[in-house]
Amino acid sequence: MPPSRTPTPPPASAPETPARRDFLRVAVHGGVLLGAAGAGCLAALPRATEEPPDDLLPLAEIAALAKLEPGTPQRFEITLARRDGWRVVQRTRRLFLLRRSGGDTAAAFAAFSSVCPHAGCEVETTGKEYICPCHQAKFDANGEAAAGPAPRGLDPLELAVQPRDGKPWLHVRWQEFVTGIAQRVPRTT
């Protein structure tokens, strides 16, 4: 008979089998590797660069705006250069110009971005008010939020009168703002 030894009691939990140890090793190492690869991929993505503010762009000759009726917004289009990844693209954006009072100064006008401050859709005008076709947000002629879910009024754009070809022209500076919040935070990227 071989020498017998007193059998030890079984451990409380099942012992770690080689298969389980292998799985855990693969899982931990694989997880770390995958995580590192994912972080590397994210870090390698080129970040959107912070763009300088747009230039003042010519909108219309002041003399031509004489026929703009006070309180009735008029739609304008401007073409902007925008960085999109590795290239600069031309984008057409819309804005609404409103005559607030008589006179030929920039203060006599107001310009509003056509981007809805709620979710970024393109707002349209009926001539008396602005309506967003996406979530039915409504704004009065002065751009103030009147109904619907918009957290703030339409975003105003900077206006200035500058000479162009020897004549005074109304110029506008395009700006985009963070949507969905009550504060008006300029978007810089």
Binding site: A48, G85, T189
Partner: peptide, 12 residues
Amino acid sequence: EMAAGGSEPGFA
């Protein structure tokens, strides 16, 4: 920013 890669969805 990670998803759009720019001010609005385009090439990036």
